[in-house]
Design a protein around this nucleic acid. Structure first.
Lengths: 209, 209, 209, 209
DNA sequence: CATGAATGAGTATTCATTCAT
DNA sequence: CATGAATGAATACTCATTCAT
């Protein structure tokens, strides 16, 4: 899929995959440290373990590296979400389970998610659309779980908003780490968010204590 | 405050303020359009209505413009929040009122908030700290309102998290506009968020309908 | 005219002219030595007496330098041709005079003409059209002189061809110097060409001796 | 001959010749389209039908391709000139015949001649000397014909110049096509040139009509 | 013999910043 | 105070050439 969008002059497809993985690994670290714009292509090449010339055998433009990084992040997130979500479950417990897995995932991939968050705007319009579609897909997965877990109780728009809230709260753990991770661990963060989500503020004091 | 951090060679303080306002106005538009990195100092000068030489009489480095923009945004946000929040109120209604005002504010300042969100990382460590402190202050204001509205019912950490949730949900309206503003208006978005916040998912269907 | 085609960021027009003349002088020498492609922009800047940054204040692309050079050559050639040709004369002598002046000019500007000859194809289509038009204009001047000098005796196509022959013979003196300048001086070259032109091969031996 | 100047690592001489012919065919087209400098070695390899690695088995440097192309062009021109010229003829008619054949040849090989014209300067000094010598040889052939056709009537320098004129007029048909081929066909061009050559401008009107 | 992946020197171009006027 | 010409470090990208397989 991504290979369709970022052509390479190298014919050996296995090699392309291998080299691009090297690139992505190297680039993420750099993008986290200094951001996309302040990272030079030479640095990316070096961090990837090959020369600048070789780098350009596997991409056309610097932006392609960013695209590859974003694409790879979404791929990994999606895989893990699909592995941890059972769309046939209908209990509230399955929603809670999904949230726990997703928050844990966001904790594991904090850096990557942060990078993506801050740099998508550097992608071309087309690439942005492609990436945002992936995000929509993932929000849809959450919507599905919510819908299954609360059969008939919520309107479509409510479900949409809840899915968005959960999605952003997961990301927020990473991109607002400077404020949240002073007060919470990923576990306390997760449990309190779940509690607030389920009970709301109007629930009695007894329930929430 | 900001003037302390960004020195100017010009003595006339009123003039400094005037010129900097011109700069901020011009720069925000450009940053929204093309981002900080892709905006040149010459473009900023032109959009501000003076020459590149004059621009550098009022700042030291390009980054200063970004700082000035961020600072000005926070100043405006803070002013409006302070105007709309009465810290002595203790009813849930006052929390609801605060949320409504804040979300409306976020709707009005979508572009500015988006810019700030995506570009803070381009500031120096010091400037970032300064700006993030402002953000902490604003979250604190929300915490205060929540605390006053729900006396004794919520733990400190819960209050902190709720404040963060509300704060981010406000920003989310702007930076996830591509997905949210298809489904919601700022009014429906506001009301459903408030409802979800207060009642939670476990509330009976009757209550939520 | 050329200024319309090659915009500069510098406002002071007199300065633009001055700097561009420096550029042209420096560039011609380099182009003669190594050709357009093998000359770097840094070399051009250095030969012009200013920095690479300054160079780019007066042009947009490297190709612009070539255009400026070509344009300046034609301007100078045209000026000298106009000064030495009297379009009201109707004798063969005036044609002979025009040829002599033109060949002398081609001798003086050998290097420049050679450069232009070899590098026009490096210009963009538009620039090429512009330059070739100038060349057409100059051939037309020759046509006019021929037409006036031989009233009623030659068809339009013949005149056209004669003008082209003379024009190319002038240039040939420069771009085939490696073969011609072993055998001829510009004076002998000129006189023999004129003789051949006027008398043709079929003239009797007595006439040509 | 050319093989002496461009060594190959391949032993099989027949194969070397075959591959180089493939190369020349591919390269000429590319050089015509985009010029030598803007044509990459990869493109040449592709157009030749083999890989970049293979290309470099048959040449040492990119310049060698250009040399091979030039050499092949001259070889073909020379062959055709020798086939159409009979050095034993002594009439003016044989000169006219030679000119007609040569102009026709230049019409057939317009593109190749144009390429050579514009790119010889990209060859090394040595290669240029080699190529220019070929050109001298061809001019000599013309000199010979002229000399035989006009026994005793013209001085050596005159003959030299006439040969040069004819030679350049042939090439001019190709490299000034943009101006000439609007007005002339190769046939009218040829006949008028011959007429002008033989009769000169001073011939009476009656003669030229 | 043929292949194509790897290399890195080389180059055009941009842009923040300075400073003389 | 204001201007804008000058600067040159920095950077993305290309492409001839090599060499292991």
């Amino acid at each position: 899929m991504a290979e369709k969008q970022v052509p390479s002059t190298i014919k050996d497809e296995a090699l392309v995959t291998k080299r691009r993985n090297q690139m992505i690994r190297g680039a993420v670290t750099l993008f986290i440290e200094k951001g996309f714009h302040k990272t030079t292509t030479r640095e990316i090449a070096k961090a990837s373990g090959f020369s600048i010339g070789t780098l350009y055998e596997y991409i056309r433009k610097k932006e392609d590296v960013l695209f590859l990084v974003c694409d790879s992040i979404y791929k990994r997130v999606k895989e893990r979400m699909e592995a941890s979500i059972d769309p046939n479950q209908t209990s509230v417990q399955s929603l809670v389970h999904a949230i726990r897995s997703y928050f844990q995932l966001m904790d594991d991939m904090q850096d990557e998610v942060l990078v993506m968050y801050q740099e998508v705007k550097s992608l071309s319009r087309d690439a942005q659309d492609y990436v945002l579609q992936k995000e929509r897909d993932m929000v849809s997965m959450l919507e599905q779980v919510i819908f299954n877990s609360l059969p008939g109780q919520r309107s479509e728009t409510q479900v949409k908003l809840i899915a968005n809230n959960i999605f952003v709260q997961g990301q927020m753990w990473g991109f607002r780490r400077w404020i949240l991770q002073r007060t919470f661990t990923i576990e306390t963060y997760t449990e309190i968010q779940i509690q607030l989500l389920l009970e709301g503020l109007n629930s009695k004091v007894e329930e929430s204590s």
